[in-house]
Simulated scan of single mutants.
Amino acid sequence: MKLYLASLAAGVLVGIVYSLMNVRSPAPPVVALIGLLGILIGEQIVPVARHLWKGDGLKAAIGLADCSNHVLGRLPGRTTDAADDAAPRS
């Protein structure tokens, strides 16, 4: 949850700086968010395609490429594994 709040705070800070400089954001918020989603999904196309090329099914390829964790990150309220708890956080 701290990561989400830090990201929101950074966005608010950038918005304040834009406002003080009398500059508009480069893209409307919805367009920017859809663009970011496209980037995240695009990053996963090559790993999934590699697994598909090896003969894995689509569902298996998505799981093996670890797409949901990369695109969504650790969701709030999600239970953690012992291995996740032992890993250092950045």
Results as ranks from 00 to 15, higher is better:
residue 27 A to M: 06
residue 68 S to F: 00
residue 89 R to N: 09
residue 13 L to T: 06
residue 12 V to G: 07
residue 57 G to N: 07
residue 24 R to F: 10
residue 61 A to D: 01
residue 56 D to L: 05
residue 26 P to I: 06
residue 36 L to G: 11
residue 42 G to R: 02
residue 81 D to S: 15
residue 16 I to S: 07
residue 67 C to G: 09
residue 1 M to R: 15
residue 76 P to E: 00
residue 39 I to Y: 09
residue 83 A to G: 01
residue 27 A to E: 05
residue 51 H to V: 01
residue 70 H to T: 02
residue 19 S to K: 13
residue 86 A to G: 04
residue 72 L to W: 04
residue 78 R to K: 11
residue 27 A to H: 08
residue 51 H to I: 00
residue 10 A to G: 15
residue 48 V to T: 02
residue 60 A to W: 02
residue 89 R to Q: 14
residue 64 L to T: 05
residue 34 I to D: 07
residue 84 D to V: 06
residue 46 V to D: 05
residue 50 R to W: 08
residue 65 A to Q: 00
residue 84 D to T: 15
residue 51 H to R: 03
residue 55 G to V: 07
residue 24 R to Q: 14
residue 27 A to Q: 04
residue 76 P to T: 01
residue 86 A to K: 12
residue 22 N to D: 15
residue 5 L to I: 12
residue 53 W to E: 08
residue 73 G to Q: 02
residue 40 L to H: 09
residue 73 G to M: 01
residue 26 P to M: 04
residue 36 L to E: 12
residue 84 D to E: 15
residue 81 D to Q: 14
residue 34 I to E: 05
residue 38 G to L: 09
residue 87 A to Q: 10
residue 3 L to K: 11
residue 29 P to L: 08
residue 90 S to W: 07
residue 57 G to Y: 06
residue 10 A to C: 15
residue 68 S to G: 01
residue 13 L to F: 12
residue 26 P to E: 06
residue 65 A to P: 02
residue 80 T to L: 13
residue 31 V to P: 02
residue 22 N to V: 09
residue 56 D to V: 01
residue 33 L to G: 14
residue 82 A to T: 13
residue 62 I to D: 00
residue 1 M to H: 13
residue 76 P to Q: 03
residue 8 L to W: 05
residue 49 A to F: 03
residue 57 G to I: 04
residue 27 A to L: 09
residue 64 L to K: 13
residue 81 D to V: 12
residue 43 E to K: 10
residue 40 L to P: 06
residue 43 E to S: 08
residue 32 A to S: 14
residue 76 P to S: 04
residue 70 H to E: 08
residue 5 L to P: 05
residue 49 A to S: 11
residue 3 L to S: 14
residue 7 S to Y: 07
residue 56 D to W: 08
residue 67 C to F: 07
residue 74 R to E: 00
residue 13 L to E: 02
residue 34 I to K: 11
residue 49 A to G: 04
residue 86 A to L: 12
residue 58 L to D: 03
residue 1 M to W: 05
residue 76 P to Y: 00
residue 89 R to L: 14
residue 58 L to W: 10
residue 73 G to T: 03
residue 48 V to R: 00
residue 69 N to H: 10
residue 48 V to A: 00
residue 81 D to K: 14
residue 11 G to A: 08
residue 28 P to V: 05
residue 63 G to S: 13
residue 54 K to L: 10
residue 22 N to I: 04
residue 4 Y to I: 14
residue 10 A to M: 14
residue 6 A to Y: 11
residue 30 V to N: 08
residue 41 I to Q: 03
residue 89 R to D: 13
residue 49 A to N: 01
residue 54 K to P: 01
residue 77 G to W: 01
residue 51 H to C: 02
residue 17 V to L: 11
residue 80 T to Q: 12
residue 30 V to L: 13
residue 8 L to H: 09
residue 32 A to Q: 09
residue 54 K to F: 12
residue 13 L to P: 00
residue 59 K to P: 01
residue 45 I to K: 03
residue 49 A to I: 00
residue 42 G to V: 04
residue 66 D to K: 09
residue 52 L to C: 04
residue 4 Y to H: 11
residue 52 L to E: 02
residue 24 R to H: 08
residue 25 S to W: 15
residue 17 V to H: 06
residue 9 A to M: 15
residue 1 M to A: 14
residue 68 S to K: 00
residue 67 C to V: 15
residue 53 W to A: 03
residue 66 D to T: 10
residue 42 G to I: 09
